[in-house]
Simulated scan of single mutants.
Amino acid sequence: MPEVSGVRTPVLFISHGAPTLADDAIWTKQLSGLASDLPKPSAILIVSAHWEEAPVALGATTTVPLIHDFHGFEQHYYDVRYPAPGAPRLADAVHKILGGRDTPVQSFPERGLDHGAYVPLVEMFPEADVPVLQMSMPSLNPQELMRMGQKLAPLRDAGVLIVGSGFFTHNLNAINFDNNVSSFMREFDEWGHQALIAQDVDALLDFQSKAPAAHLAHPRTEHFAPLFVALGAGHEELDGARTVVDGFWNGLAKRSVRIA
């Protein structure tokens, strides 16, 4: 376990955007401003919508090349580098917290950060001077992910910033480059906003049944799932949950949340 730092870090859920996020002056400024308001973390533990692996898996603990896991973009998006240090001590701590005889934790030492991890971190911590460890989602089950976040919560007392990186709504068929937003995206976004304000965790956990247009806002749920890791890690301080980025990007809700 990393040493207790004396400063308990907040928890974040970030809507991470595509590689073209770097071209959005408003959104990049929002993410930069969000990071400037945080205590500098000792390390970052990030869960991205783009890595599902069971049992839970950890990425590289040394600096390895990024995973440019997207297709059809201009070359300069593939030229992006983010040489953040690895976080081997954090990896050891996660192994101890989540591992066990019946629940092994896997290691993928060659797996670099995917775009769900590095795209927002480039804007938030551009110096790439904070150690980063990426962890997989072993399931899309909201309850399981929240329990995992709860187990990881003590890492916050060691200055570890726990980040769930997804998208508050995510339906690629609804993307609109003029940013015309469909009614179902607005309805789901507002429902989720109000559920967070009300600390209605039960409704959020059952969002597929409770939220309006849930299956249109999330035809597949992997981009909403990282929110539950964040809710678990911040479960004792949900009264401190607040939106730190809102609005829409190409028709998708980019709501991001800070807890505590």
Score class of each variant (00 low, 15 high):
2 P>K: 03
5 S>T: 15
10 P>L: 01
11 V>Q: 04
13 F>H: 05
15 S>H: 01
16 H>V: 05
17 G>E: 12
18 A>I: 07
28 T>F: 13
32 S>R: 15
34 L>C: 12
35 A>I: 03
35 A>Q: 02
36 S>R: 01
39 P>A: 07
40 K>H: 15
42 S>V: 10
43 A>M: 08
43 A>P: 10
45 L>Y: 00
49 A>M: 02
51 W>F: 15
52 E>F: 07
54 A>W: 15
56 V>R: 01
57 A>H: 13
57 A>G: 08
64 V>S: 02
65 P>Q: 06
70 F>E: 02
70 F>H: 03
71 H>W: 09
77 Y>M: 02
77 Y>L: 01
88 P>M: 10
89 R>F: 06
92 D>E: 15
93 A>T: 13
97 I>Q: 07
99 G>F: 12
101 R>E: 13
103 T>N: 15
103 T>M: 13
105 V>N: 12
105 V>E: 10
105 V>Y: 14
106 Q>G: 10
109 P>K: 13
110 E>T: 14
110 E>D: 15
119 V>M: 09
120 P>S: 08
124 M>N: 09
128 A>V: 08
129 D>C: 00
132 V>M: 09
133 L>W: 11
135 M>A: 13
139 S>I: 10
139 S>W: 06
143 Q>D: 04
143 Q>S: 06
145 L>K: 12
146 M>N: 07
148 M>I: 11
158 A>C: 06
168 F>D: 01
172 L>A: 05
174 A>C: 05
174 A>E: 09
174 A>G: 11
177 F>R: 07
177 F>V: 09
178 D>L: 07
178 D>A: 15
179 N>H: 05
182 S>C: 00
183 S>L: 13
185 M>I: 15
185 M>R: 09
188 F>E: 01
188 F>Y: 08
191 W>N: 09
191 W>K: 00
200 D>M: 00
201 V>H: 04
202 D>T: 12
208 Q>F: 05
209 S>H: 04
210 K>L: 01
215 H>E: 15
223 H>K: 00
224 F>R: 00
226 P>L: 13
226 P>R: 08
227 L>F: 13
232 G>Y: 12
239 D>C: 13
243 T>H: 08
243 T>N: 10
247 G>A: 06
247 G>M: 03
248 F>D: 03
250 N>E: 10
252 L>A: 11
252 L>W: 00
253 A>R: 10
254 K>W: 12
256 S>K: 02
256 S>P: 12
258 R>D: 02
